[in-house]
Design a protein around this nucleic acid. Structure first.
Length: 489
RNA sequence: GGCCCCGUCGUCUAGCCUGGUCUAGGACACAUGCUUUUCACGCAUGCAACACGGGUUCAAAUCCCGUCGGGGUCACCA
C-alpha cells in the first residue's frame, strides 16, 4: 500500500510558517515513499471561514513547490476535498455510530454545560462531560418540545488508549480521564474529531502528520476509528514552532510569521523549504544545505525532533544567502524586475538597455543581494537621479576639510577619463591618489558618498560606470551644493 | 488544577534508544583578526550548553525517580 499523507488547513486566514512546515513534512514523506500528498480544506466551521484564505493557501503551496496529488483544483477519486461538501459522508458515519450504540443524543443546554464547567473549574479538576443516553420516552418528549440535540460519543470506561506515535513514541491515556465528546453539533455540523477521522479513513490516509496540539485529540479520534471499524493510520505529532529566542508558541504577535511576508520580500522557495525542513529535523551532525531532491531522498520521521524549535529569522536569512549565491545572473535579473516595478523605479516596459543596466547593477551588487527586495534598499540610487544622502556617511566621509575641493578635482577627472569604464577609471583614480599623495580610501570613500549617497555598496568603479559620466558629474555637483547649504553661516 | 508532551551553547542541532571514543561536535548569530576603497563574500580564531536535585553504575548528556520550567488539552473551534 502506498503512503498517503495529507495537510488539512482550516481556511481562517494567512498561511503560518509553522503550518507550512507541517505541510512540508507531509509532502516530503509522501514524495520520499513515492506516495500521494492530499490537500483537504477543513472548512466545517463556516463561521470562521475566510473568503480568500483557500486561494492564499494554494498560492503558498505553489510558491513552495509543494504539489498536491489530490485536492482543490486537481480533484481526485476520493473527493470532494472540502469538508463543507462532505456532509453525506459524515451523516452516514454518524448513523452507523448511532446504530451501533457508540453515540447518544445529548439534549443538554448551554446553560447546563456552563454550570458543569464552572463547577469543575472551582473543584480544580478537568471538565468532563459524561451523560447517559436518553430513553425513548425522553427522546420523544424532548423532540416534541423541539429541543435540539447534539450527538455525543460515549467513551467506554476502564480502558487505556495508546497512540504509537512516530515522533513522540507510545503515549497512553486512560479513558476514565476523557469526557464524552460531541461529534455532531445540534444543527448537524460535524466536528473536527469526527470529521477528520471519517475523512482520513475515507481518503485512505496512511500517515497523519500534524501539529502536536492535536496529540490529546488523537485519543478521542482513535476511539472513533475503532467504533467505525476503520483501520488506524500511523500518527506523527510534530512539535510546535516557537517564537524567535523563546519557547513560546509562534503567533501573529511575533511579527513575520506568514509565508506571504517572505514571499513578498523576495525569498527563494528553495531557501524557505531548506530552512523549514531544518527546523525540527536534521539529517546528520553537519549538513545544513539541502536541495529539494536531497530533502525528498533524506527525509524521515525518525529524525524529526520531539521537542519544539524556535523560528530563527537569522538562519533563514543565511540559508537564503547561500541559495542566492547559486543562482545565475539572468535569473536574478528577471526576479528583481517586479520589485523595481512595484517601487516605481522602472516602468512596465523594460527596454534592452534598461535590462542591461539592471543586469549590471545585480552583477555589481553580487552577494550583497540577499533577497530580491534588497534591490530596492541596496540599489535604489542606480535607478533615480534624486540622491538621498545617508547622514552617517555624509558625516563620516564628507564633513571634512578639503572634501569639496577634492570633489571638484575628481569631477574634472571624471570629465576627462577616456573611455569611461571600470579599468580606465581605476587607473585614473590610482594615479590621482598617487600624484596628490592621498590614501586611496580618502579619495574613494568621499566619491562614493558623493555619487551614491551611501557609505557602503558595490565597488566604486562599478558604480561610476553603471551611473555613467553625466550622472556622476551631476551628482557630485548636487552633493557640493548640499554641502554648501549645510555649512553654518 | 487534572491529564498528556517537552527540557544539550542566545538560536537550529549531533550525541541519548544500544552508558565509556564527549576535556560534548557542527551551523547561525555575536566578537576579533586577515583580505579589501566601503560593505558583502571568503579565510582564521574566539565566546558559549548537557534545567536542577537525588539514585543506579567502576563510569551518566546518555538509565531510573523527584523538582522546577515551557507547551498542549480539558469547546456543540480546528
Amino acid at each position: 500500500m502506498s503512503v498517503r499523507t495529507r495537510f488539512a488547513p482550516s481556511p481562517t486566514g494567512y498561511l503560518h510558517i509553522g503550518g507550512v512546515r507541517t505541510a512540508l513534512f507531509n509532502w516530503l514523506l509522501a514524495r520520499h515513499y513515492g506516495g500521494q500528498f492530499v490537500l483537504r480544506i477543513d472548512d466545517t466551521d463556516q463561521e470562521r471561514h475566510v473568503e480568500k484564505a483557500v486561494g492564499m493557501i494554494l498560492d503558498g503551496f505553489r510558491w513552495m513547490g509543494m504539489d498536491w496529488d489530490e485536492g482543490p483544483e486537481v480533484g481526485g477519486s476520493v473527493g470532494p476535498y472540502y469538508q463543507s461538501q462532505r456532509g453525506e459522508k459524515y451523516k452516514a458515519a454518524a448513523d452507523k455510530l448511532v446504530a451501533s450504540g457508540h453515540v447518544y443524543r445529548d439534549y443538554s443546554t448551554d446553560v447546563e454545560r456552563a454550570a458543569g464547567k464552572k463547577a469543575a473549574d472551582e473543584a480544580r479538576v478537568a471538565y468532563r462531560f459524561r451523560g447517559t443516553p436518553p430513553t425513548p420516552d425522553e427522546m420523544a418528549r424532548f423532540d416534541a418540545e423541539g429541543r435540539p440535540y447534539a450527538l455525543r460519543f460515549q467513551v467506554p470506561l476502564g480502558r487505556t488508549v495508546v497512540i504509537h506515535d512516530l515522533i513522540k513514541g507510545d503515549v497512553e491515556q486512560k479513558t476514565d480521564e476523557m469526557g464524552d465528546f460531541v461529534i455532531v453539533r445540534a444543527g448537524g455540523q460535524p466536528l473536527y474529531n469526527f470529521a477528520s477521522v471519517v475523512d482520513d479513513a475515507d481518503m485512505a490516509i496512511t500517515h497523519v502528520v500534524r501539529a502536536e496540539e492535536h496529540l490529546t485529540n488523537t485519543f478521542s479520534q482513535i476511539l472513533v476509528f475503532q467504533a467505525l471499524e476503520y483501520e488506524l493510520p500511523a500518527f506523527a505529532h510534530v512539535p510546535y514552532v516557537a517564537a524567535p529566542g523563546s519557547r513560546k508558541k509562534l503567533s501573529k504577535r511575533d511579527g513575520a510569521v506568514g509565508l506571504d511576508t517572505y514571499m513578498g520580500q523576495g525569498y527563494l522557495p528553495a531557501a524557505m523549504m531548506n530552512y523549514l525542513a531544518r527546523i525540527g529535523w536534521s539529517f546528520d551532525a553537519t549538513q545544513e544545505i539541502f536541495t529539494r531532491s536531497e530533502l525528498i531522498e533524506k527525509f524521515s520521521l525518525e529524525r524529526v525532533n520531539s521537542s519544539p524549535a524556535s523560528h530563527d529569522p537569522d538562519k533563514l536569512f543565511w540559508i537564503q544567502g547561500e541559495w542566492m549565491k547559486t543562482l545565475p545572473l539572468a535569473e536574478k535579473v528577471d526576479a528583481v524586475i517586479p520589485f523595481l516595478r512595484d517601487a516605481g523605479l522602472v516602468g512596465e516596459e523594460i527596454h534592452l538597455n534598461q535590462k542591461r543596466k539592471i543586469a549590471a547593477v545585480v552583477s555589481a551588487l553580487g552577494d550583497r543581494l540577499k533577497t530580491y527586495s534588497d534591490i530596492i534598499t541596496l540599489g535604489r540610487y542606480f535607478f533615480t537621479e534624486t540622491l538621498t544622502h545617508d547622514p552617517d556617511a555624509v558625516k563620516k566621509r564628507l564633513k571634512k576639510p578639503g572634501v569639496p575641493d577634492l570633489l571638484r578635482k575628481l569631477d574634472l577627472l571624471l570629465a576627462t577619463v577616456e573611455p569611461y569604464e571600470i579599468a580606465t577609471l581605476e587607473t585614473a583614480m590610482h594615479q590621482f591618489a598617487e600624484t596628490n599623495a592621498i590614501k586611496m580610501g580618502d579619495v574613494v570613500n568621499p566619491l562614493r558618498v558623493a555619487t551614491t549617497g551611501q557609505g557602503v555598496g558595490p565597488g566604486l568603479y562599478d558604480c561610476l560606470e553603471i551611473l555613467g559620466r553625466e550622472s556622476c558629474r551631476a551628482r557630485i555637483a548636487g552633493t557640493l551644493a548640499m554641502l554648501e547649504e549645510a555649512r553654518p553661516a
